[in-house]
Amino acid sequence: MNLKRLWTYRKLILFFLLIFLSFLILMAQQRQALSESQAGRIALVIFDPLFKATAWVDERVVDFFDVALSRSSLRRENEALQQELAALEVRYRLLKHEMLKLQSLSDLQTLDLTRSLRLLPASVTAVSPSPWSRTVVVDKGIIQGVRTNMAVVHVTGLVGIVREVTPNSAVVQLLIDQRSAVGVRVEETRERGIVRGLGTPERYELLLEESGEGPQEGATVVSSGLEGSHFAGGLLVGTVHGAKKNKYGQVIAMVKPAVNMNRLEEVLIILGSEEGS
């Protein structure tokens, strides 16, 4: 009798079961029980061709309209770039000469000036369409040496961190994502703090450790690179744009990202330093 009655409410019961299941999955993530998501990796591998196809189609569409609509401006831009390239070539030769002179000085040989990072260039092949996730997929993965928690940079500054890796692609969680945070230092005052993403590409939030006057407008914010951090020190995060104090006296500043996340196409994944770390 009771079962019959239950059967009449089967749709409602199924609905609440699914809702409950969603809650359980979310709660499991809060406890980080689902941090290494095998299902996510499998879905990424299966849909990787789809991402690459979208990028391929988009690039062809953009290229077609770019060429069709801006032929004359492209010619002008090309000429200007060629002139700039020639000037840079000269400057490069001068600098190379100066560097060779510096290297010949014996006291500089002990310094770590030549320490450089092993960088892997990667192209963005997909951008998360969710308004609640600021991530991109890049076309390099395990085969090329990418691992989770590697820092990702752009020529202009810090981009984010690798969160998921498949053989030929990786998910990069951008610094503007609400789940992102990085330990930073204000370059001018050496104050330490944490920069957090706000989900918007226009700004980050900087929470300073010390309750002073706060950084000045335009101050440079770089990654602190403290022990335990996934990011190397000195990577440009952004510049300060306004600061205020919260009710606990802590200084909260707004930081303008150094990287324009709206135009992210090519990034560099830091694989480690040349020494092999």
Partner: peptide, 18 residues
């Protein structure tokens, strides 16, 4: 599926779409 591909917190879109 959308949550996995868009790298959202998994279950968020599942909840909304259900």
């Amino acid at each position: 599926l959308y949550g996995l591909l868009a790298y959202e917190p998994i279950g968020l879109s599942a909840f909304g779409l259900t």
